[in-house]
C-alpha cells in the first residue's frame, strides 16, 4: 500500500523526512493518487487565484445592494473611512478585500468557493492583500494557495465542510485556518509554524454557529469574512513567534468534528435559532421573504 496522508501528523513527518515544503508534499501526494498531476493542480490554483483577484476588483467598485437589500455597501464604507487603522494598512486592505469578495458573492456574482462560498472572502483577502503589499511573486502566491488547499483537504477528510453539518466553524473557521497557513507560508514560516497557525486558528473558532438571518448568506456571513480574515493574521503572528498549540492539530480537528455533531440542528444553517430568530431577524424576514 502506498503511503497515505490523511492527517496533519503524517503531512508533518513527510515534510520533515523529505525536507520539503507542505505544498511540495501536497503536490507529490495528489500526483501519486493518479488523477491530479502537478500541472493540473497548479493550473486550477492559477485559475482560482485569477478569479479571486477579479472578484476583489469588481467588488471594490460595486455598491449594488444584494437582492434582499440588506447588504452590499459595507466595502465602500470601509474603503472610504479616513480614521486611523491601528492594525495598519495591510490589515485594512485585508478587511476591505474580504468584504469586496463577500459582497460579490451575495450579489450572485462570480467567486471562488474556498472552501465554501459563504467563506469565500477569507483566503483571497489575506493572500492577495499580503502578496500585493510585500511583492510576493505569482508562483509563491500559487504555492500559498496550494498550502491552504492541503489544509482544507485534511480537515475535509475528517468532517464535512457544510455549515448545515458542522456549523460555521466548518466554513469560515476552516477558511481562516487555510488563510493562516497561506499567510505563514508566504512569510517564510516553517512547516511546524504553519501547522501551529492552523491549529491556533481552528481552536479559537470551535462551536461557531451558522444562523443566517432570513436564511441568506448575508447576516452575519458578510461581516464574518473580514473578522475571520484578521483571525487568520492573529494565528499567523502567534505561530511565527513559535507559540504552539498545546492540543495537537489532529486532535483539534477531532474536537471540531465532535463539536459540529453536538451542535443543535437549529444552529446549523436551518435559520431556526440564534441570530436568525432574534426579534429584528423575524421582522426582516416578514419584510423580505414576502
Amino acid at each position: 500500500m502506498k503511503h497515505n496522508i490523511t492527517e496533519f501528523r503524517q503531512l508533518y513527518y513527510a515534510c520533515k523526512e523529505q525536507n520539503k515544503k507542505i505544498y511540495e508534499i501536497a503536490l507529490d501526494y495528489e500526483a501519486s493518487r493518479g488523477e491530479n498531476p502537478e500541472y493540473k493542480v497548479r493550473l486550477q490554483a492559477k485559475k482560482s487565484l485569477d478569479a479571486m483577484k477579479e472578484a476583489i476588483t469588481t467588488g471594490l467598485k460595486c455598491t449594488e445592494p444584494s437582492p434582499s437589500g440588506m447588504s452590499g455597501d459595507d466595502c465602500d464604507k470601509l474603503q472610504n473611512s479616513k480614521h486611523n487603522f491601528i492594525l495598519g494598512q495591510t490589515a485594512k486592505k485585508i478587511m476591505t478585500y474580504a468584504l469586496a469578495t463577500s459582497e460579490q458573492n451575495l450579489r450572485m456574482g462570480t467567486i471562488v468557493a474556498c472552501p465554501t462560498a459563504g467563506s469565500c472572502g477569507i483566503v483571497p483577502a489575506v493572500l492577495i492583500a499580503f502578496a500585493e503589499d510585500n511583492n510576493i511573486k505569482e508562483c509563491d502566491q500559487i504555492n500559498a494557495l496550494i498550502t491552504a488547499g492541503e489544509v482544507g483537504r485534511l480537515v475535509a477528510n475528517k468532517m464535512s465542510l457544510a455549515g448545515a453539518v458542522g456549523g460555521c466553524q466548518a466554513e469560515c473557521g476552516v477558511a481562516s485556518a487555510m488563510a493562516a497557513a497561506a499567510l505563514t507560508q508566504m512569510r517564510g514560516g516553517s512547516v511546524k509554524q504553519i501547522i501551529n497557525a492552523v491549529a491556533l486558528a481552528l481552536k479559537n473558532i470551535l462551536g461557531l454557529t451558522c444562523d443566517p438571518v432570513c436564511g441568506l448568506v448575508e447576516i452575519p456571513c458578510v461581516k464574518r469574512n473580514p473578522f475571520l480574515a484578521i483571525h487568520a493574521v492573529t494565528a499567523s503572528e502567534l505561530a511565527m513567534s513559535d507559540i504552539i498549540s498545546k492540543i495537537p492539530i489532529d486532535e483539534v480537528v477531532d474536537a471540531m468534528e465532535q463539536t459540529g455533531q453536538l451542535m443543535s440542528p437549529l444552529l446549523k444553517e436551518s435559520s431556526q435559532g440564534g441570530l436568525a430568530k432574534t426579534k429584528t431577524a423575524i421582522a426582516l424576514e416578514k419584510n423580505i421573504l414576502k
Binding site: 493542480v41 474556498c114 459563504g118 483537504r153 448568506v217
Partner: peptide, 20 residues
C-alpha cells in the same frame, strides 16, 4: 477511503452565494 483533493477545496469558481 475516498479522499477529497486540493482541487475540490480551492474550487469551484461559481455563481454565489452558497457552495452547498
Amino acid at each position: 477511503m475516498n479522499q477529497s483533493s486540493i482541487i475540490d477545496i480551492i474550487s469551484p469558481i461559481m455563481a454565489g452565494p452558497s457552495s452547498s
